[in-house]
């Protein structure tokens, strides 16, 4: 039985994975105070992690109907993420494991996202193309097998979710921006403010270094310029939904086109999404539409798409199965390199 803890950002999560790999307990506490600041404040997030971590673990154990003494091994997100938040979970887990004389392992947050789909869908096994899109990361990978990952592309500036949050702030919508923009986009007409799709050109070839990479900063600036024009004309309020639709359309088109390029190059028709932006229905619909009937799109349920400890436990099951263990000197790293990149 594995007890995993995830505290890489503003969610505090604990999960219990049974010896047969079944998820026995899973609790996620989401901090709701960041909305008033227009984004996550690292020190506020870190303080909140300390406040709730014991409650979250106790509830996860209760849900699993077990006690901490019955845990065989511990796992914790070691990075990447907000260092202050990471250190809370990391030190909690290290002390608990050491005090009980049990092994523990630090897990890479983005590798854990790759395993999220496998917790609830037997098809989410390698090989597959993975698009991991959240507020902190945007990665396009070909997962040849567990532990062997080809990093094809990543964002060159803002993460996809970050762009949604920033545009939502520009439009005065609040935080987090993704769900708000998606809801308004349904009522809008994107063609009223057409934005070009970043990093996608007609004659782009696989040899080009931006063939798989993504960018959202220019798109955000284009929205800002349009907002200023509309403000000057006194028309902004009436155009917000149309701007949401136009921004989302360009962002989704970029993510979809890059993902389909990976599908074509890898000749792998199975795509797994991960991260908070995976919850965006327009993104899933666009990729599913482009994959066609021969392709498979696997989108984890919302609880497993966003930051959670269940995926950490599942990744730990794989790593512990290889005989890997972390040492007492395990530390958190805000920019921890992903293991298994080939």
């Amino acid at each position: 039985m594995i007890l995993a803890v995830e505290t890489s950002c503003d969610d505090t999560s604990a999960a219990i994975l049974g010896r047969d790999g079944g998820l026995l307990g899973h609790v996620i506490a989401t901090q709701d105070m960041h909305g008033e600041f227009g984004g996550i404040v690292p020190e506020v997030a870190s303080r909140a992690q300390v406040k709730v971590i014991d409650h979250v673990v106790v509830r996860a154990l209760a849900e699993a109907g077990t006690s901490i003494g019955d845990v065989d091994a511990f796992a914790v997100t070691a990075g990447p993420g907000l260092i202050g938040s990471l250190l809370v979970g990391l030190n909690w887990v290290k002390a608990a494991a050491y005090a009980l004389g049990k092994p523990f392992i630090g897990i890479h947050h983005m590798e854990a996202h790759l395993f999220a789909g496998a917790l609830e869908d037997g098809r989410a096994e390698p090989p597959f193309v993975a698009l991991l899109v959240s507020g902190g990361h945007t990665l396009l990978l070909y997962v040849e097998s567990w532990g062997r990952y080809h990093l094809l592309g990543q964002t060159r500036d803002d993460a996809a979710g970050e762009a949604f949050d920033k545009v939502a702030r520009l439009l005065g919508l609040g935080y987090p921006g993704g769900p708000l923009i998606e809801r308004l986009a349904r009522e809008g007409d994107g063609s009223r403010h057409p934005f070009s799709t970043p990093m996608v050109r007609a004659a782009q070839r696989e040899e080009d270094d931006d063939y798989y990479d993504m960018s959202f900063s220019g798109l955000k600036t284009a929205v800002l310029m349009r907002v200023r024009e509309l403000e000057a004309e006194g028309r902004l309020e009436k155009e917000v939904a149309h701007l949401c639709a136009a921004f989302q359309s360009a962002a989704v088109e970029q993510l979809t086109e890059k993902t389909l390029r990976a599908v074509r190059a890898s000749r792998c028709q199975r795509v797994v999404l991960g991260g908070g932006v995976a919850r965006n229905g327009a993104l899933a619909a666009a990729i599913r539409g482009r994959l066609g009937r021969e392709g498979e799109l696997i989108v984890p349920s919302p609880r497993l798409a966003t930051d959670n400890a269940a995926m950490v436990a599942r990744a730990a099951r794989y790593r512990l199965g290889l005989g890997e263990r972390s040492g007492l000197d395990l530390n958190a790293e805000a920019d921890l390199p992903m293991p298994g990149i080939v």
């Binding site: 870190s46 303080r47 300390v50 971590i53 202050g84 030190n91 002390a95 005090a99």
Partner: peptide, 19 residues
């Protein structure tokens, strides 16, 4: 140090909750 005091507090909580 905010980070420093959290490190010791997290260790203490994890240890105490475990045992």
């Amino acid at each position: 140090s905010f980070t420093g005091v959290r490190i010791a507090a997290s260790l203490a909580k994890g240890w105490s909750m475990a045992r």
